[in-house]
Design a binder for these strands. Structure first.
Lengths: 206, 206, 206, 206
DNA sequence: CCATAAACGAGACGGTACGTCTAGTCTTAAG
DNA sequence: CTTAAGACTAGACGTACCGTCTCGTTTATGG
């Protein structure tokens, strides 16, 4: 155990010397380009050219086009700083969920988020490695907030304590994702409200 | 009275002279290849080579790789002949839905359906034209069956007559799609049952 | 030796039922197209389309694009009806040759003849089969006229009886062809005269 | 004072970074392939494959297949190093010309030179741009040697001082080219001698 | 005067090569 | 050593033609 630098086949580059300027330029270029031309036409070459960066600089730090996009999307999310926030808890579960779900609908309908998140979703459907990254870094932290809010409701007696919070959350999030991804019908506040109401009340008559 | 045949600059080929043999070979080759190598490596050239067909024969009849795949998938579905069937109606809505949803889970977990349907879903997320075709030809006919079954349940007094059947259906299908597409957690019969139960009972305690 | 119809692998079609209309249209179309777009862009499909003819009608009667062109060129030549004529014999060899050679220069410089004959020459350089046809049907009959005129001159004592008429003719025709084919310098009447004069007089001082 | 570097829309690549290895491989592959299969079957793809080179590397540096061939042919000529040499001057014009012309005949009859030079000649006949390049880089330097030798002969009193050396040269070279290109009759030393003799002596009896 | 067999127009077919585009790797010069 | 720049090998793209192979439709005798 003498060698202090155990040479891997591909010795990863020295992160301390990485150019922050280039990193920013690449992420910005990726977001700009996907907004302009769509995912199909987003190429590494175009990103490099737009960012004023050598292609190798991208290949050095990211394993794929989708990975660049994921980082770009995370950076976009951090701007909006909605990562750490907790879901509201006013005591009214239905109202709180509707508020959050309406905000999500607005985000999904905003062009700024739509293009990159669609691209990531599409890539994730077909690329398990990226999918794992995407869910871990973006999706699950969001879903965890729902779990906590539902659990609080259960403790407060506003929700059936036997229900699995994870399933409950997916009962709300799943339909929204379905409409958004497959564009079956428009994704509106009214629909968001209807989903929340029905998920809380259930289909069986009371 | 506008002409019903607005002549395009590229006159479409004569469908009556189309080679059924080639059509079959192309669809089969597409399904085989996507099962073997995934969507990313599925190329028109590979399909043509595998099918023993000139590339132009593909370009003549399909506008894109995704369109070939959609046709191949539809053909696959017609094999299984699940297009025209009605959902079972034993009088027990929960049991009927669980049976159907479990079958869907099995289908989504089978390799034969997984690869092509993932590819189509991914492409649809990012390609509105294909998405419209996909939903119209594949998705909506399936969803319509749910609508009818739920409506029957409402008429039989087993389901809340005020609930929108469309929303109710999405409450069940959405979560399955979500887990399948984004692989957040395994897609099992148990999960399918849990979704149906919760969707019927609702999260609010009774 | 009983069979009166020894079936070849490719039984050639019945010439008596050939459509003269189509034949004319094809030759005309070939000449028109080569004049418009050059040999590089002359395609069988374009000829067929322009002539309003099926491709098979061309393939039935000609073995190659170049063969069509050769026939078209021969037809063009027969229009001009210079095939059977004899070279003039006024008793003045130099004057007679200059007259003929000037006429040839004019022909080579006329756009109507230039494009197709260039194409045939180019193809001949690289395609021995066509070359044999071309020389037999077009070139040699012309050259033979020179041989006869020179031989007459030798008999009349106007030309060295020891000289080979064939070599003599090529001394005149070769330089013209050289300039025309390789465009080294302009092909003029003055040049034609100079070639004839020098070929008759010789380079050695008298 | 107009700019001397009028920026083209397609900025030409950086010549200093060109791979000499690839260039050589391409030229060699082109010569090999044309010798094996003829010009008709010489394709850019075949050259690239044989040379172990990407197609783009050919398209980057040459505008057309013919341009590759021209460079390959020039390289072949430079091997033989016959570019800078002067024609021999032993004082006997006839003997000197015959020696040179016989050597040319041998070259034209050698398979190594025949295929590529035929291809270039054929292409030149039909492609003025290539023709200009071909004559400038290959043909004219050769012809200029004849002009100088003939002029020397005129100064030495061995050739008619009134004759135009350019015409005289073409009187010799033209017939050789004619026989070679159109294969009317075999191209032999005897024919070469006969042409030189007749060109010097003239057809008119002395 | 039809019957029939060919040549015909049209164009789909299996292929080959085109010239372009992008991927991902490698090389160079500057810092 | 990282960077911008970009040449490199590799190979898919979508297009254009090739030469072959059906399709009906003329058309032109010959039974």
């Amino acid at each position: 155990m003498a060698s202090s630098t155990p040479k891997n086949p591909k010795p990863q580059p020295d992160r301390t010397r990485r150019s922050e300027r280039s990193r920013q330029a690449i992420l910005t270029a990726a977001l700009d380009l996907i907004g302009e031309s769509g995912y199909q036409r987003l190429t590494i070459e175009a990103i490099a050219a737009r960012a004023g960066v050598g292609k190798q600089t991208i290949y050095r730090w990211w394993p794929s086009k989708a990975a660049v996009l994921l980082d770009a999307f995370v950076a976009l999310g951090e701007e909006a700083a909605d990562g750490g926030t907790e879901l509201p808890d006013t005591g009214d579960l239905a109202a709180d969920l509707k508020a959050v779900v309406r905000a999500t609908v607005d985000e999904l309908n905003s062009p700024r988020f739509d293009a990159p998140s669609r691209a990531l979703a599409a890539e994730s459907v077909v690329n398990p490695e990226l999918c794992a990254q995407f869910t871990e870094r973006v999706l699950e932290p969001q879903l965890e907030l729902y779990v906590r809010r539902i659990r609080a409701a259960q403790e407060a007696g506003q929700a059936d304590p036997d229900a699995d919070p994870r399933t409950a959350l997916e009962l709300i999030v799943g339909p929204l994702a379905h409409r958004w991804l497959l564009r079956t019908l428009p994704l509106t506040h009214a629909y968001a409200d209807a989903v929340v109401d029905l998920a809380l009340r259930g289909l069986t008559p009371r």
